[in-house]
Simulated scan of single mutants.
Amino acid sequence: MKALRFAALGDSLTEGVGDPVGGGWRGWAALLAEGLAPTEVPVEFRNFATSGAQTSDVLLRQLPCALAFTPDVASVVAGINDTLRAAFDIHAVAAHLDTVYGAFAERGTVLLTACLPDPGALLGLPGVLARPLARRQRAVNSVVHALSERHGAVHLHAADAAWAADPALWSVDRLHPGERGHREFAARFHAVLAAAGETLGPAPPVEPERPAPTRAAGLWWLATAGTGWVARRCADLLPGLLALAAEEARHGMRGTGARLDLRASAGVAAALASVPGLEVPLRACDHVTGVAQAASGTSQPCEVCP
């Protein structure tokens, strides 16, 4: 019997960071693979995701390998690392994701995408630091929504979902799910696939196999293995983030913070308008300072989000 092939692309979330098994990472994609097909159908799973990957890495490094694997199902979950870089460019994010999504769609591959919570909220950063990151993540999510609709992706909405905000789902670093969180992501992806009419096997169990690490163990990991991650991100992001925070504070003092939201909305609208053949809807998600506000000055119910 022909096996079903599943390729996972993205960053550390898809790589499985936070869900250690056998000296490596497992993660939501591996858990989902176990329930992607009826029990009599074998599943071949390849995880091409790498920690720290930006959308450019997904396009240039992961996509060619994934296409050579000729998957029946492919997941593409990326964009948070783009928001954590000083040189964040929403136009580039839109172009990269459109190319990646389109490459799978034109081959008839079932495409899985997701929008994600903003990292500033997960980290509990002060407002002047959290708001610029939130604005960037909203921009990425707006692009993901529009392009998922364009390419007929099966989309998991996790940007502001109550379940995604549960602290019990996240590891001590506050950016990666723990085992419970990865299982929740796998079960949620399974549910949206089932709702889309895909033939699946049993849903992945949501209860962890192992007890959650103690707070002391988590802090030890963060102080050892986690320090490299923090150092790399700070070296690249901190100067730009401090500049964003200073601009946020200036506008806050003047009462003109809405201008930053409108600027971000205009950037999203321009980025989507630059994607060849994409008709930008004049609507905006309630959770996104949206394309519609930049285009028409109004906020209306979203056409693509649940």
Results as ranks from 00 to 15, higher is better:
111 L>K: 01
82 D>M: 02
101 Y>E: 05
85 R>G: 04
135 R>T: 07
122 L>E: 09
97 L>H: 00
136 R>S: 00
138 R>E: 13
90 I>Y: 11
126 P>G: 00
115 C>T: 15
97 L>W: 00
105 A>Y: 14
112 L>T: 04
92 A>I: 06
69 F>Q: 04
114 A>I: 05
103 A>N: 14
79 G>T: 08
117 P>L: 03
83 T>Y: 12
130 A>T: 12
132 P>N: 02
76 V>K: 00
74 A>P: 07
85 R>Q: 08
126 P>R: 04
126 P>F: 00
89 D>T: 02
131 R>D: 14
87 A>D: 15
70 T>V: 11
90 I>C: 03
98 D>C: 13
133 L>Q: 01
98 D>V: 07
119 P>M: 07
136 R>I: 01
104 F>Y: 13
131 R>A: 15
83 T>M: 11
129 L>R: 14
100 V>R: 04
129 L>T: 13
120 G>T: 01
95 A>W: 03
116 L>T: 11
122 L>P: 04
117 P>V: 02
102 G>Q: 07
109 T>K: 12
131 R>I: 02
102 G>C: 09
76 V>F: 02
72 D>E: 03
115 C>H: 11
102 G>K: 11
101 Y>V: 05
125 L>E: 10
79 G>W: 01
138 R>G: 15
128 V>H: 14
106 E>D: 15
120 G>R: 03
136 R>P: 06
115 C>M: 09
82 D>K: 05
77 V>P: 02
109 T>Y: 15
103 A>R: 10
83 T>K: 01
74 A>V: 05
115 C>W: 13
93 V>L: 08
73 V>H: 09
75 S>F: 00
102 G>A: 06
121 A>V: 10
125 L>H: 04
118 D>W: 01
105 A>R: 14
86 A>W: 13
104 F>A: 00
121 A>P: 00
131 R>K: 12
83 T>Q: 01
87 A>C: 09
97 L>D: 10
76 V>T: 09
124 G>Q: 08
121 A>M: 06
84 L>M: 15
97 L>V: 13
95 A>T: 15
111 L>D: 11
95 A>C: 06
130 A>H: 13
96 H>Y: 02
95 A>Y: 02
90 I>S: 06
117 P>R: 00
105 A>L: 03
91 H>F: 14
135 R>E: 03
104 F>V: 00
71 P>F: 12
85 R>S: 11
133 L>P: 05
83 T>L: 03
111 L>Q: 12
76 V>L: 06
96 H>F: 07
102 G>M: 14
115 C>L: 08
101 Y>F: 15
73 V>N: 07
135 R>L: 09
118 D>P: 06
108 G>Q: 06
116 L>S: 06
116 L>R: 08
88 F>A: 01
123 L>N: 07
91 H>I: 11
100 V>T: 07
123 L>K: 05
136 R>C: 02
111 L>N: 08
127 G>V: 07
84 L>H: 02
127 G>Q: 10
134 A>R: 15
122 L>I: 09
99 T>A: 13
76 V>W: 00
92 A>F: 09
121 A>T: 14
85 R>M: 09
92 A>L: 14
